[in-house]
Amino acid sequence: MDDHGPGPEPDEGDEGSIVARAQDGDLAAFEHLVIAYQDRIFRLAYRMLNDRLDAEDVVQETLTSSWRSLPLLADVNAFGAWLYRLATNKCLDLLRRRSTHAETSTDPDELLGIGEHGFPQAPAGTDPADQAQWSAQQEGLAAVLNTLPPAQRACWLLREIHGRSYTEISDTLKISPTTVRGMLARARHHIAEGMGQWR
């Protein structure tokens, strides 16, 4: 029944066991986790920061610091939640530092126009008419996203793009689950309005 390989290879279905091995310093297990999470963390960080290099830094810092404090993680099944929390807070810290250093405008209406870099391309083979509408929608969403206050943006991305739970988001942002719901509603409202203006 159980198909065990020759070595202590991690089993896909049981992340807890892989995490536990990594906690004991098993490099192969940790590498497995790095590969499983680095792209997700990058996508989150990129949408938070709009900067490839900063996003890569966040991925690297999150994963190396997770290696260091991994032995302290009490619940092996909470690894994903914990990584998302580390990464989100690194993004928020970075945005806080940016806002104290730079003279970036915080007026949403002004910011609306500056999100032109880094929008995703429509998938190849899309019908041109669809593609035009598709990218208009994408650009609208991505641009409006950048106008949200950082915590609201994190909240929306974690929930809507990464499918994290309300409880987890409330732990990450250190706010109550009710506040998460409120924040999410405001984010949706803001984005829907913004996309309307974008049209």
Partner: peptide, 21 residues
């Protein structure tokens, strides 16, 4: 429209080769 755009963004980010470290 937001919902459609959200699903589209989620899917395109997931498969966009540019959105990888």
């Amino acid at each position: 429209r937001l919902q459609e755009a959200t699903v589209a963004l989620r899917e395109s980010d997931l498969h966009d080769p540019e959105l990888k470290p």
